[in-house]
Amino acid sequence: MTDSQKKAAYWQANLRLVLICLIIWFVVSFGFGILLVDPLNNIAIGGYKLGFWFAQQGSIYVFLGLIFFYASQMNKLDRKFDVHED
């Protein structure tokens, strides 16, 4: 693989990963927290209605997980495609 092919493949892998992460990002916040809030509110966890919980708590925890997942996967990609720093 030439250097520019390698860079292109790295970029494609990155875009795929970003897309997966952003789908999850959208589903937990806009999906569970806003569009599907009413049906989810029929389910209760403790005193929280589930839709309300996603809107005010759950989505934030998922966002956190997503960023660290992305960062660690990208570190692997950086090495795999040999584009890492130092």
């Binding site: 250097d3 040999d82 584009v83 720093e85």
Partner: peptide
């Protein structure tokens, strides 16, 4: 788009 400068 790529982190490393050396590869280029």
């Amino acid at each position: 788009r790529v982190p490393g400068g050396a590869g280029a």
